[in-house]
Design a protein around this nucleic acid. Structure first.
Lengths: 126, 126, 126, 126
DNA sequence: GTGGTCTAGACCACC
DNA sequence: GTGGTCTAGACCACA
């Protein structure tokens, strides 16, 4: 069960939850996700809200629709989710972090653990 | 007026708000801050909650107490607030950021704007 | 069992008692101290009073918290207790002693046993 | 009105209170102090307790008895009180202070303010 | 009027 | 089960 918070749209929160479950492997590429009515009843929200969720996920190439049957996880869903999160990261988290670094006058040395992680990432990609 | 959110303690949010107002210059070092019961009434919370706020701020050397008179902003308050925020940054924000960098497999180049800011900080300190 | 006196807060007396028991070795660094509600029941005080005790001890780096598990004696607890007592000494006991010396017009020679002790302390540190 | 505490005898506390009032000038040398019955009624204690107080004060040459009339403050009372307090100081306060200095491993330099006071005392006596 | 402490009891989140 | 927070209300000391 999801507990809905105030600061984000409910449809967005449901989408995030589905993405989480896809990344965790609960729904694999090719799997059918629960139907609109099913989810609406389970979460106690209007079915239009679920539709909005699926439309967003479809735009992001995370689910695809088979007319009259239901929504299915795309084969590229995990990568698409990852990519979307990267976009979110560059659009909002990174600027916020930079803002903090600026305000607190953080120095190069202070971020050593961050650089260690970056180097690890780079080695993985080799 | 402060809108109390769910994720942080009310007493903490009030403390944060007071720190903000000290940094903004609304309360200057040496100023008396509103009395415990005054704040409690104004914010519609229990006086014990305000006490908890002041105990925390006192431990952080941001306010000091004159018994029977009230709480006063310390001369070092702005620096102490800055210092506390740095601690918070290294204890919580930085690790969360590193976690994201790891999960999203962010590379060195992706963080160019961050490095630009770091270099600016360094130049200011010269 | 602690007998609560009038001049100090109960929460402070409980804190002092715990420090005593840490110094005596009853609670060693890394040990778990009794839970908030256990202590409250044992001492017949409200659990909020024990919480206040632990908040103070935590600020003094004498215990640390593991959420949902309990409070644990820090590895540095004995030194922190010693250090805190020194602070207390300089803040309150020494001024009171000086006040007495002044009122009673005590002379240099009268304090010979004190100087002997000071010299012993100095030799230990060599 | 005196509030009786638990750790000292009541007669002692009454004696301390009378000494305080003599030092403060409320009762001057040669003055008559309130009668046994009067004090007993005022303080709500047994007159034997007051008698015990006066016997102690008489032993200390702070009051003297004129048979059938009452107790009077001696001409030397202030000095005697001062002297008694010095005795108390050397018997109990100084040893306790030395004990603390030992436990906390206080150094010579730490007590600078004390030495300053001692030098002041010495100059007054010149 | 100021702060300070304590209680009783509720409700939450985490494990 | 653990800690953590908040409320309502009482009572105290100090000024």
């Amino acid at each position: 069960m999801i507990e809905f918070k105030n600061n984000k749209g409910i449809f967005q929160q449901i989408a995030d939850n589905l993405c989480e479950r896809i990344l965790s492997g609960e729904f694999k590429p090719g799997d059918k996700v629960p139907s609109v009515r099913e989810l609406a009843a389970l979460l106690g929200v209007n079915h239009n809200t679920i539709m909005r969720t699926f439309i967003e996920l479809q735009h992001a190439n995370i689910v695809e629709n088979r007319r009259g049957i239901g929504y299915y996880v795309t084969t590229t869903a995990p990568e698409m989710i990852q990519q979307q999160r990267r976009e979110e990261f560059f659009k909002s988290e990174l600027p916020a972090f930079i803002q903090q670094v600026k305000l607190l006058n953080i120095s190069h040395q202070d971020l050593q653990p961050l650089f260690d992680q970056l180097n690890e990432n780079q080695n993985e990609n080799k």
